[in-house]
Simulated assay, not measured.
Amino acid sequence: MKKIFITLILALICTISKATEKEIIAEVTFENLTNKEFTSGEFTIINSNHKIEVNNAESFKITLPEKGKYLFSFVSDDFTAYTFYPARISNRKNTITIRLMEKTELSYSSGIYSFPMNLDTNLTEEQIKIRISDGTLNFIIHGIDGSIPEEYLAFKEKYGIGLIKENCVIDPLSFKKVTENNQMIFDYLNKKYGTEWLTELKAKPFGIK
């Protein structure tokens, strides 16, 4: 009995150790290109919708479950924020840079810009099915708050496709990638279900009428 117990403990330690080995420690750094002191903002890991309140411009570290593609955003009421990061986060490429610039009237209220828009919009039908199975395929819309309409919760339950809602963005690159992502999902659903599924979404994502 004692041997069995020791074996189970060792197996548990081994499992935890392997999980820890997969984790990636990424560093978030700031470039303040203004004369204004930074005092507040919110950093978001969009994949998990994990939000971190930030109260100064000192670098900080985040833990990600494994290497791969991630989406990040940063918003501050006092600055226009540009977020730069590698297309794939790994142990070697793990720096996320937030560039703070003066907010102008053209920045709108959100001041959020995220680069690159890590969306693979050329998935095969088989890859789409895998993403649906993993629960990682999402429509993307932009709005002034982070609330998700109830219809999308029911939609994911039925079709396996969720929704990511980001703050308003105005850069053409992000808009183009979001539209391509939504159109790819639109084409897949039309092929599989016809157009009836559209009646279940009152708020249509970009690129879908």
Rank of each mutant, 00 (worst) to 15 (best):
R92E: 15
Y159S: 11
K165S: 13
E126A: 01
E105I: 08
T121C: 10
K192M: 11
L163D: 03
L153Q: 12
E126I: 00
T97G: 08
V169M: 05
N94S: 11
P86M: 07
K93N: 13
E180N: 13
M184T: 05
T104K: 15
A87D: 10
K156W: 03
R92H: 12
N91R: 15
I170Y: 10
M101S: 04
T95Y: 08
T95D: 11
I170M: 10
E125D: 09
D187P: 11
L137I: 06
K158W: 08
P149C: 00
S174N: 12
D187W: 10
M101H: 03
L106N: 15
N118T: 04
I140P: 00
L163E: 04
G146F: 13
V169N: 00
Y152R: 05
I130C: 01
N118M: 00
I185M: 12
E126G: 00
K192D: 01
S174F: 05
R131H: 06
S110A: 14
E105F: 09
I96D: 01
C168S: 09
P172E: 10
S133M: 11
G111V: 03
N182C: 06
K103W: 01
N182A: 04
K103E: 00
K129D: 02
L123N: 03
I96S: 01
E126H: 00
K177T: 08
T97Y: 08
M117P: 10
Q183R: 15
N190A: 12
E102T: 08
L106A: 13
T179D: 06
S147T: 03
F155G: 03
M117G: 02
G162F: 05
N182V: 03
D171Q: 11
